[in-house]
Design a protein around this nucleic acid. Structure first.
Lengths: 191, 191
DNA sequence: TTGATAGGTGAATACTTATTCATAAATTTG
DNA sequence: CAAATTTATGAATAAGTATTCACCTATCAA
């Protein structure tokens, strides 16, 4: 038929978007600048994405899926609950801080007006394995037998704060801090 | 001299602003709508506030100070650390959830591009008594002897999550939930 | 090689919205 | 009560920026 889409352009657009959000914040994000930074014409963005809203939501899902795929890396189902959980928690923290532009984008996105419920739902799905893990911990009598939402607030809440402290430069997340922070969480949720 | 300012108008403007943020989010906040909702002309807003940025920042400080004044209400210096801390934590949570439009505004503000460092600093000052309380707990050997930032991440992180769950309707914060949530935090930080 | 088709361009368009400002209305003071 | 002064008004202004679209270009099938 005709010329085909160049899906590498999507990567370029994502990269440019993230960098601009890091530099100037979410509300300073301009389509014309995204295009320029990606080395494309403004109109080209509208070939790959319906509108700005679509671009932002797609990028969110892309990053979120990418992060989620790393949470449970290197685990074996035979490992003890404690071991799997500790690996998960530390991995979640480190993956959340890993890349400044990823982190800036994800953090700012969640409270932004861009977020769509369908996207929120799909990103909620990504937590399914975490809920399963909590169920296992409860069944084995290792975790307090409480509502998973409540446990999760306890598990992820501190992570979000630590990521913020790290980004603001208030607290350096050394291995020791990482370890102490994990124990604070663990001592809270264990039965 | 001449006509005097009517400081009740500031309250009207604050109220209108909060309600609009609750209804349509931060980025949907329009000066013309704030004025209309407050029953004033657009230009009047610029008599009481330098610009939109100023309005938003003033309102943030106003609400934040109001909340902070309630955190330690009803405490006596002779009370035990545990008692003061528990009252503080539960009060912080309930004050954070209390009023939907306050909560929506505060939550969205913090990650918005409006925030100024001077305002951030002043609102950080409000946490001073909390840091003092943590120092007392450490000195008495009741709390783990860790960096206060780290402890605070553990103490306030879950609160932010619970407020979100409450707002989204995912979790109803009953007295029992409140109690369980507190114990999760307490078991984590106690030495 | 050529016609058809879809990608690519970026200036022009269309729209939104913060802020200003000429004018009117309300208070205060002497 | 009149002059002086500041508040209050809201239409007009000024800027910014998402999106479109007429035109160009690359690629594919025949």
């Amino acid at each position: 038929m005709a010329r085909q889409r160049d899906y590498q352009k999507i990567e370029l657009i994502y990269k440019a978007t993230q960098e601009l959000v890091l530099e100037r914040g979410f509300s300073g994000l301009k389509m014309a600048e995204v295009a320029q930074k990606a080395g494309l014409a403004t109109g080209t963005l509208y070939i790959y994405f319906k509108d700005k809203d679509d671009l932002v939501n797609q990028l969110y899902l892309y990053l979120k899926r990418q992060k989620a795929s790393l949470w449970f890396q290197g685990n074996n189902h035979n490992d003890s609950f404690h071991l799997i959980f500790e690996r998960f928690w530390k991995q979640f923290l480190s993956v959340s801080m890993e890349n400044a532009s990823d982190a800036a984008f994800l953090e700012q996105y969640y409270r932004s007006p861009f977020i769509k419920n369908t996207v929120k739902d799909e990103s909620g799905q990504l937590l399914k394995p975490v809920y399963d893990l909590l169920d296992r911990g409860k069944k084995e009598g290792i975790l307090k037998n409480l509502n998973s939402e409540l446990l999760l607030a306890q598990i992820l809440g501190p992570i979000h704060e630590l990521v913020r402290l790290h980004r603001e430069g208030t607290l350096q997340i050394t291995n020791e801090v990482n370890h102490d922070a994990f124990n604070l969480v663990w001592d809270g949720i264990k039965s």
